[in-house]
């Protein structure tokens, strides 16, 4: 097992090498923020690598920022090469984006970090970590840190029982009560690596499904629609739930569908390198893909 200081040193050394050699033009990592906790950092210059840190407060899934590097900086140029620091949960989103041809593998240098689990603002293990026993990213170019020992998680979906024990009417009431708090700030969508539509169907000027109102029916449509659009694609990084200012238990929706997909197709998004998204595959009924 490696300490945060050791991994911080290794990240800085790796970043320096990548920037000085010109292999990438930017490192997406973490720095110390104004509130004393880690925040996303973009390092463009080898002289700035000392800003980069690693620690148990590095909660953010930085792969969402890869979408900002898909286009060339200037017309006629190639898109930039970029490096990104990933935890095991984040790395699953890389596989999803690769399968969906959103990023090119050779343009993204993946700095994987062996993960002990991260902590929320109160210093408790983050919710995602209580149901995750991955200690090594599923995809990386370099792996930093020694993978720590970990006891396997028996059932990462155990908490779903909470809503499944409800009758349909109770479940509807539960969700309507939750959605009532939503302010439709779209933070859940914006932080999600899998939500990258240029214009979200819930935000179209000519939208037939929902209007601009910030009321329960629109919020209900948005959250259920978003969950369905992420079926077989959600990497279960739980960022949507972390960023929600109103504390909506959004991962109950996404992971309920993730379990459904696993039961039906034996597939968990991002766990393996896939050639295409699950829902693009055609197979015999009942056969695993």
């Amino acid at each position: 097992m490696s300490t945060s200081e050791e991994i911080t040193r290794e990240i800085r050394a790796q970043a320096r090498e990548l920037l000085e050699s010109g292999q990438v033009s930017c490192i997406i990592g973490y720095e110390v923020g104004s509130r004393g906790r880690a925040r996303p950092a973009f390092v463009h210059d080898a002289d700035d690598v000392e800003r980069l840190i690693w620690g148990p407060d590095c909660v953010h899934n930085l792969t969402v920022y890869l979408h900002d590097f898909k286009k060339p900086r200037k017309r006629g140029e190639e898109p930039p090469h970029v490096a990104v620091v990933v935890k095991p949960c984040d790395s699953r989103a890389v596989n999803v984006l690769l399968a969906e041809q959103q990023i090119e593998r050779e343009r993204v240098f993946i700095i994987g970090v062996a993960c002990e689990g991260v902590q929320d603002e109160t210093g408790e293990p983050a919710a995602r970590c209580t149901r995750c026993d991955d200690r090594v990213p599923v995809v990386y170019d370099v792996l930093l840190g020694e993978p720590p020992q970990v006891s396997p998680v028996e059932d990462g979906f155990a908490d779903l029982a909470r809503i499944e024990e409800m009758s349909p009417a109770e479940r509807l009431a539960f969700w309507l009560h939750q959605f009532d708090r939503c302010i439709r700030c779209y933070a859940c969508r914006q932080v999600c690596p899998g939500c990258y539509c240029t214009t979200c169907m819930f935000e179209r000027d000519d939208g037939l499904w929902v209007d601009i109102g910030i009321e329960v029916p629109q919020k209900y449509m948005f959250h259920l629609g978003r969950a369905l659009h992420l079926a077989g694609r959600c990497a279960e990084c739980n960022e949507c739930e972390r960023v929600c200012p109103m504390g909506l238990p959004l991962s109950l929706l996404n992971r309920r569908l993730a379990r459904e997909v696993e039961t039906l197709f034996g597939y968990r998004a991002g766990r393996e390198v896939a050639l295409s998204p699950l829902l693009f595959e055609l197979g015999e009924e009942g056969s695993p893909i």
Binding site: R39, P40, A41, F42, V64, Y65, D68, I183, R184, C185, Y186, A187, R189, Q190, V191, V243, P245
Partner: peptide
């Protein structure tokens, strides 16, 4: 750079 373009 790190803004998510959400509305919080």
């Amino acid at each position: 750079e790190r803004c998510l373009s959400c509305r919080i």
